[in-house]
Design a binder for these strands. Structure first.
Lengths: 239, 239
DNA sequence: TCTTCTATAAATCTCGAGAAAAAACCTTGA
DNA sequence: TCAAGGTTTTTTCTCGAGATTTATAGAAGA
């Protein structure tokens, strides 16, 4: 009935083509830091690692430009987007600007299906949080996935495809930084309690409280990353 | 000093490569409606028109996915993004959310260079507005360029690269619709007066007034497009 | 020692052809 | 007339090799 203009960003979608497959694996590797921020991405090297032809890999890299995870410079190849504290601050504040607005709309417009969806997403997230803490990277990965699902479910009832599209990109960006913040836990947090409060306020349709909890929640991660030593952001230029 | 993470979107940049050249020409053709919304973009056809190889054209199309002017469906090729009134409403409101925030920041942080830049941009825009009206498509094109330059100059002092990046995408999207609104002039506007007021309020650092004028200004175009007959948005599915 | 120029090496960009998939077409049967 | 199945045509996807450009290393000169 209503065709989407913003391109949908496939997540756990089965890749229909070699380009998409390489794109998904490359994206995961960049977010997980296998390819460090600022690192040069040489097609001739990577085509072996991802087992595709040179042209195919170039197309996958071009797709990553859409997510702003890779930057392309004409005649000078591709690079992993660099990271910095300033950038994360920008990402966080822009994301809040969009996500709080989307949340407001969701709380106002969300119907029964939306409610059921966030109840389910919150439940799944809670379960993942219980299994966390044993330094289990597999559990952490599952938590990351469900955390994203929870946040996206909260704003799913917003009618703005564009806000959701940009929010998706920014959330993806912030994943790279969140991974860093796991290296040290300078700020003790009860993340489950934060999510619980956000969940309660949302179901109660308390817009003011929900948005302020969300803001606190997201800014807390920003603070944690700010405390990291600057060496984490020393983007390598070569190789 | 501060590496950018959001990819810069080249404008009148000299293309360093065949891909970039085809990308720029394709983008212009889509915005100008040479390729209609929803239209299928067949590589074999287009490679002749733009005088590049098939692989090269595919890469150019992939770059347009970043601008959300083209959507790619695995194993089913490329399409011009469809348009609709709902989409333009979404674009406009999301753009206002970002652009008013950026304007607030600019008015607070902009220095002498920023002031000089908007004075210059406003002057150039005013000149272009004088030459307008004779149904001169060349003058209209120049006006479009300077209008964009003026709006971007206003928010140039915002420190948020991400807001500016998203604003750039949304502005580009809205160009397709603004072109439609030229077909009929249902609402009489004194666009120069609107720009003049926006310019004055900005120089006076009157945040409240500037943002409200900007909002009115942008919404007025939305209203104009809303009055167009629905046939304009009948996105063709074939060819 | 440092700069500048040159030669070598490496990487990117570009193209066309073959393989795979999707769409269009036609035939057959009810 | 319509639907289903199968065949042909079209289009997309994929790859590797050649042409350009950039980066690197070495030599010459001050």
């Amino acid at each position: 009935m209503n065709e989407a203009v913003p391109p949908k960003t496939p997540d756990a979608v089965e890749p229909k083509t070699l380009v998409e497959g390489a794109y998904q694996r490359l994206r995961r590797d960049i977010i997980e830091g296998v390819h460090a921020p600022g690192e040069k991405l040489r097609v001739e090297h990577l085509k072996d690692r991802y087992e595709v032809g040179a042209g195919t890999l170039r197309e996958a890299l071009l797709l990553l430009v859409t997510d702003a995870l890779v930057i392309a410079q004409g005649q000078r190849g591709f690079r992993v987007s660099p990271i910095s504290i300033e950038d994360f601050e920008d990402i966080t504040r822009t994301r809040l600007l969009l996500e709080t607005e989307a949340l407001r709309q969701s709380l106002q417009l969300g119907g029964e299906d939306w409610e059921a969806a966030i109840v389910a997403a919150f439940h799944r997230l809670s379960r993942a949080e219980q299994k966390l803490g044993d330094n289990d990277s597999l559990a952490a990965e599952e938590w990351e996935r469900r955390n994203r699902a929870f946040h996206e479910a909260l704003i799913a009832a917003s009618p703005s495809r564009w806000i959701r599209h940009f929010q998706h990109i920014l959330y993806q960006q912030s994943e790279r930084y969140r991974r860093l913040s796991l290296f040290s836990h300078p700020i003790p947090r009860d993340i489950h309690a934060e999510h619980q409060a956000l969940f309660n306020a949302s179901l109660a349709r308390d817009t003011t409280r929900a948005t302020s909890i969300l803001t606190e929640h997201v800014l807390r991660t920003l603070d944690a990353v700010k405390l990291l030593p600057e060496e984490f952001f020393a983007g390598k230029r070569k190789s």
